[in-house]
Nucleic acid binder design. Structure first.
Lengths: 196, 196
DNA sequence: CTAAAAACATACTACTTAGTATGTTTTTAA
DNA sequence: TTAAAAACATACTAAGTAGTATGTTTTTAG
């Protein structure tokens, strides 16, 4: 039970890449198995349906990468406002597997799936909640440590920042250059500054 | 040449509604003509392809509604910062044809189409530009009239605000309640306050 | 009123899609 | 080593898709 797991993960990774660049609907199973060098039999041995694979992508690909790239970095800088800004700057300008022309995977998924698949919505809501909670509690701690003003609503700030992030990711798709991110980063900095 | 135009617009309106609620890919032409009570012959008389219809939706439905609901209201309030906040509050909480579970049409289109259709991207970029330019020049005027600090970068503020709007619209899809919009509106208000 | 063009209607095609039926090979456990 | 289960392979199906071919009806202009 080792090779099998490799096959499964290989399918998930290739499928994720295709879906990230093309969208879920426009990515066919035939295309996935072609680029994965796996046959239909193997695919349907590992996943009952395409949607089951989609859910697996959220839980087994998106979720871990969210933890690694979106949450853990928050704890490497003492000042939470600095941590948030640095995170966003890294995500937008430096993180390599995120491309300006393809936007944010979680945001893309949310946009495309939510209207017609409740399970996808639930799974996406859950992983988004993780990000929100991390950032919120970080700000709360910042209030205790005098990095953040006491009257700041941590949850509100978090949602505001993340909304901007999702929005500017979509914006980037239109402009097709990372320069499009700069206005957001610039204003994010001044905004965060007003919270201390 | 009057009845024909009615048919054409009827198709565009019904198609827009379907696409807004379900997405472009998942809305089939058969579905469109079924709800429009029009036959395939009529559809393909008015539009050479599905994508031509999609472009027509952007230019003939989205664009006018953007002007009417997203731009014109900006000029009804003297203080540009108040105008922007009021616009966003109205769009998010009151505008009836925008539903929390379906997000923002322009943002949806951008998200779904950009990766695989250049023409859609161009058209969407163009109408988005209209919104940005309006809001930017409004803020510039606000600087002259002492409503806005002189050192504020109008374009940056505009992009920051609109990004937040797009993002919170996507956020609403996960939460499925307009309450999800409140953190954005709340922080938008305090953010705009710091610009005066 | 009438012919020609515009506007629509119907039946079909070629292709793609997710999923299945039925196999064969590989791995695992005794 | 061997039998059984796991893992994969191939060929197929049924349903849907955008788009077309070929009509008929309606409108318009002279």
């Amino acid at each position: 039970m080792k090779k099998a797991e490799t096959t499964r993960l290989s399918i998930l990774h290739k499928a994720f890449k295709l879906i990230y660049t093309k969208g879920y609907q426009t990515t066919s199973i035939d295309e996935i198995i072609a680029t994965t060098q796996v046959t239909k039999g193997a695919f349907y041995y590992h996943f009952k349906t395409k949607d089951e694979m989609g859910l697996a992508i959220i839980n087994e690909i998106l979720k871990p990468s969210l933890t690694e790239s979106f949450i853990d970095p928050l704890y490497t800088i003492e000042n939470p406002l600095d941590a948030i800004y640095t995170l966003m700057e890294n995500l937008l300008m430096k993180t390599e597997f995120l491309k300006v022309e393809y936007g944010c995977p979680t945001s893309n998924f949310t946009q495309e799936m939510t209207p017609w698949n409740v399970d996808f919505g639930r799974a996406l809501k859950e992983i988004t909640k993780l990000w929100i909670q991390s950032m919120t509690s970080l700000i709360e701690k910042g209030k205790e440590n005098a990095f953040v003003r006491k009257d700041v609503n941590a949850k509100h700030v978090t949602v505001f920042v993340i909304s901007g992030y999702w929005g500017i990711r979509n914006f980037g798709k239109l402009e097709n250059t990372k320069k499009a991110y700069l206005p957001y980063l610039n204003q994010l900095k001044t905004y965060l500054h007003t919270l201390q």
